[in-house]
Each structure stands twice: as structure tokens, then as C-alpha cells.
């Protein structure tokens, strides 16, 4: 076992745990967005940034940093709240996140985070990019306006379903989640129509057709359940 401190609480952790796992085991809340049980952590969204006091107050993503003996972690402070809120505001400013108009209104992780972190408005100018909706798939749709590029769909498709349909195309703010070689989703030759990407998506970017907002609640626990049930070699 490894001994560390999180928000001045002594924590005993398994050596392979991340700081996030240790914090959760102790009941300390750290906000996350790109993290999802059942998928490998990538540290992409930076909302789980924590401060390591004895690493010169360095900021590290809790989801992708392994525990170490003697770590003195700050998981919640005014500085961290302000940093996380800034990251969140940048996410909102980057694309067209219009809650009132969204199929995930009321059960969206991005919307919940705004509430949790006290974001009452976005201080950055909105980019208002012109982005498409791909509704070519018979069962599902992808609305790039609502995508935060967390990559949960990409990982669910690759790591759990093994189809590798989704990928990141382009770079920076122009990155889009696209199927195969960029053809419309409905023409994908690798998609198994399993819907795991839809249930992995934290926002309304991936959605099921023919369902109203109230029915659009996602089963985020699905991927963890599937991976846990899978027989191990």
C-alpha cells in the first residue's frame, strides 16, 4: 500500500491507483469529463487538475497520475476551482453549446459541471463555428456543435467494442470526430451499430434518433459493466 494525503486527509492507496481513484475511495470529489469507468484515462480535458504541494505545487491530471508514497495532493482550492472554471468556459466558448436546444438538456455532464463549478456565464468570446450534424446513420446522429473532443466515444469504440470506427480528424479547435476515412457515419464499413459511443458521450453530441430529450438519458455505467463482465484470460 502507498500512503499519501489528499486535501490533508491521510489516504491509503493501492500502488497502481491513480490520484483520482484514491480520491474517490476516500469520498473526495474531483470533477472529471474525459474520464469514464471502463476506459483508459487520457488526461485530455484537464478538469481533474490537482496540485501537488511537494512537487513545487505542480498541476497534474488526477485521472492519469499514479499515486506515490508521500504525495501531498490539493484536490480542491480556490485556485483549482478558478482554473477548472476557466477550462470549462473555454469548452463552452469553443463550440455551440445551447442547453435549451439540446437533446441532453437536464442530463449532460458539461451542463452539470457548469452548475457544480459555479459558472454563471462565459467570460471568453464565443467562437460560434459553423459545424455540421451527421444524421446519415439509421439509429444514431452526431452533432459536432456539442462535441467537447473528450474522446470517450473513440475509446469506447476501440477499447470496448474493438471496431475502431471513430477517430480524431484534423487538429486543434478544428478537430472533428469522424468515422473511418471521413465518409458519413451511415456509410461506415466498420461500425457495428452497438451504440456504446452514444452511451459514452458526456453531452448531446452523440444521440439516439427518435428519442425525445427526456428519453435521451445515457447509461454511462454501461462500459464499466461490459468490461467487468468480460471473461479474463
Amino acid at each position: 500500500m502507498v500512503n499519501l494525503r489528499i486535501d490533508d486527509t491521510p489516504v491509503r492507496a493501492e500502488p497502481h491507483w491513480t490520484i483520482l481513484t484514491a480520491a474517490r475511495a476516500t469520498g473526495i470529489r474531483i470533477p472529471t469529463l474525459c474520464d469514464l469507468d471502463g476506459l483508459r484515462p487520457v488526461g485530455a480535458c484537464r478538469l481533474c487538475l490537482v496540485e501537488i504541494r511537494n512537487w513545487n505545487s505542480r498541476l497534474v491530471p488526477a485521472c492519469a497520475t499514479q499515486v506515490q508514497e508521500g504525495l501531498d495532493v490539493v484536490a480542491n482550492s480556490d485556485r483549482l476551482i478558478s482554473l477548472r472554471r476557466t477550462i470549462l468556459e473555454l469548452l463552452f466558448a469553443e463550440r455551440n453549446h445551447i442547453c435549451a436546444f439540446c437533446v441532453s438538456n437536464g442530463h449532460c455532464e458539461l451542463q452539470d459541471l457548469a452548475t457544480e463549478l459555479g459558472m454563471d456565464h462565459v467570460t471568453f468570446p464565443y467562437r460560434f463555428p459553423a459545424l455540421a450534424v451527421d444524421a446519415s446513420h439509421p439509429k444514431f446522429g452526431i452533432d459536432h456543435n456539442r462535441c467537447v473532443l473528450c474522446g470517450r466515444c473513440v475509446r469506447a469504440c476501440a477499447e470496448v467494442e474493438g471496431a475502431f470506427t471513430w477517430g480524431f480528424a484534423g487538429r486543434g479547435v478544428f478537430t472533428l470526430i469522424e468515422a473511418d476515412l471521413g465518409a458519413p457515419w451511415g456509410q461506415s464499413t466498420t461500425c457495428t451499430e452497438c451504440g456504446k459511443c452514444v452511451h459514452a458521450c458526456p453531452t448531446g453530441a452523440l444521440f439516439e434518433k427518435g428519442k425525445i430529450t427526456a428519453e435521451q438519458e445515457k447509461r454511462h455505467a454501461l462500459l464499466a459493466e461490459v468490461t467487468q463482465r468480460r471473461p479474463r484470460a
Partner: peptide
């Protein structure tokens, strides 16, 4: 936020 009227912005 701009909300629904901002749908025309792109």
C-alpha cells in the same frame, strides 16, 4: 449566453 437567438451566428 446568446442561447437560441445565437443559433444564427455561424
Amino acid at each position: 449566453t446568446g442561447n437560441v437567438p445565437s443559433l444564427r451566428n455561424p
